[in-house]
Computed example of a mutant assay.
Amino acid sequence: MSIISLTTSLGFAAIEPPQATLPNEQSTIENNKNLIRLSLAKQALAGLKTRPLVGSRYQTELQASANVIDIQPLLNLREQYFAAQIEAQSASTAITLSQKAITRTQELYRNGVNSHRQLQEQQMTHNALQARLAINQYRLQSINNILTVNWGDRLSEWAKANNNVEFQNFINGQQALLLVSLPAGNTLPKGSIHITVDPNSERQNPQTADFVASAPQGSESSQGETYFFKAPRAKLRTGMRLSAWIAKQNKTLTGFNIPTAALVWHAGLATIYVKTAPEYFQRFSLINYYPIDSGYFVAEPLPINTEVVVSGVQILLSHEFRTLIPAEDNDGDD
């Protein structure tokens, strides 16, 4: 039996109840046409289930985008930095030894043991080592500048350290580096140490990501500010695009939490039914609602001390608007 035929066979009556029994709250639809009366017996037959509306608070969020960054370019720069560092250290050690050799050669020259030519050759070797050191110091500074320009101070310092635990977590695959891009005109709320991300834009099971630093890199997907965050690698893969949610620190809303099953769509609007009296249900179109782990937070002035329908919502909606469906669409089932 279809939903349409079920609502017809139940004999629902979309009527306006006597004024004395109307709930005090008024709906957004004129003349209370979104009120449905249904006896307790028929509610049971339709399988309607409700849940008390419980007041709640919600911290508003800024939605952003994120990408799992390929850190191979950073690893390449790190390798170049260490190679230049080793070369510079080697040159510095060689210069120290060369200076000692020059001192000995000078002493031998003064005593007539070595020739002036030997002293000159020793000095030339020393000068070549100093030039080698200068070149490697320049390379070190150049690589350091590239690191800072492309990756910022903090990631650069992590990369240049031999045994930085945070950076090792990127190398061994425990952590993924994220580039979070805010919508244009927004800035990261103060104190945003943790945010939530998800590759499927699902708010129910997000991952937590931790702040690393402001990012000097821009994003192709947004003209807003960018930041580096880190998150457990788990199912994240390099190149993935993620949705990110960032709590706004100074904006808390009051309202109600409703389960996912309570919400249906009608005329492009999120819709719920509230049981305002034992036999009366009222439809509300939602404007201010936000996905949360358990369903949705609704920042609407819903009737207090009432219940939201969590099962059979589509039946109520179909019945209320059954007059808009041509009679030939009914399947004729009893």
Score class of each variant (00 low, 15 high):
residue 156 S to I: 01
residue 215 A to Q: 01
residue 153 D to F: 09
residue 283 R to Q: 14
residue 260 T to S: 14
residue 309 V to K: 06
residue 61 E to A: 10
residue 19 Q to V: 09
residue 52 P to W: 06
residue 133 L to P: 00
residue 86 I to M: 15
residue 35 L to W: 10
residue 44 A to D: 11
residue 200 N to R: 12
residue 232 P to I: 03
residue 313 V to A: 01
residue 145 N to D: 03
residue 181 S to K: 05
residue 19 Q to T: 08
residue 93 T to D: 10
residue 191 G to M: 04
residue 114 N to R: 15
residue 242 L to S: 00
residue 298 V to I: 10
residue 11 G to E: 12
residue 227 Y to V: 00
residue 130 Q to L: 13
residue 289 Y to W: 13
residue 301 P to G: 03
residue 2 S to F: 07
residue 183 P to Y: 13
residue 62 L to H: 03
residue 139 R to T: 01
residue 266 H to D: 11
residue 195 I to G: 02
residue 307 E to D: 05
residue 257 N to I: 10
residue 237 R to T: 11
residue 192 S to T: 04
residue 152 G to E: 00
residue 27 S to L: 06
residue 323 T to L: 11
residue 238 T to D: 12
residue 131 A to F: 14
residue 86 I to T: 15
residue 22 L to I: 09
residue 148 T to V: 01
residue 245 W to A: 12
residue 232 P to H: 07
residue 276 T to Y: 05
residue 115 S to H: 05
residue 127 N to E: 13
residue 257 N to Q: 14
residue 218 G to M: 05
residue 324 L to M: 13
residue 230 K to T: 10
residue 12 F to D: 02
residue 164 N to F: 03
residue 123 Q to L: 13
residue 283 R to S: 03
residue 310 V to G: 06
residue 227 Y to P: 02
residue 17 P to N: 05
residue 22 L to K: 15
residue 300 E to W: 07
residue 97 L to D: 02
residue 132 R to H: 09
residue 169 N to K: 12
residue 177 L to W: 05
residue 44 A to P: 01
residue 112 G to K: 05
residue 132 R to I: 00
residue 261 A to V: 02
residue 132 R to P: 01
residue 232 P to R: 12
residue 276 T to S: 04
residue 197 V to M: 04
residue 46 A to M: 15
residue 100 K to Q: 14
residue 225 E to T: 07
residue 227 Y to M: 06
residue 205 N to I: 07
residue 123 Q to C: 02
residue 243 S to T: 08
residue 188 L to A: 07
residue 259 P to M: 08
residue 301 P to R: 12
residue 179 L to G: 05
residue 208 T to L: 15
residue 263 L to P: 02
residue 35 L to T: 01
residue 190 K to S: 11
residue 7 T to C: 07
residue 257 N to F: 11
residue 124 M to C: 02
residue 195 I to E: 00
residue 161 A to I: 00
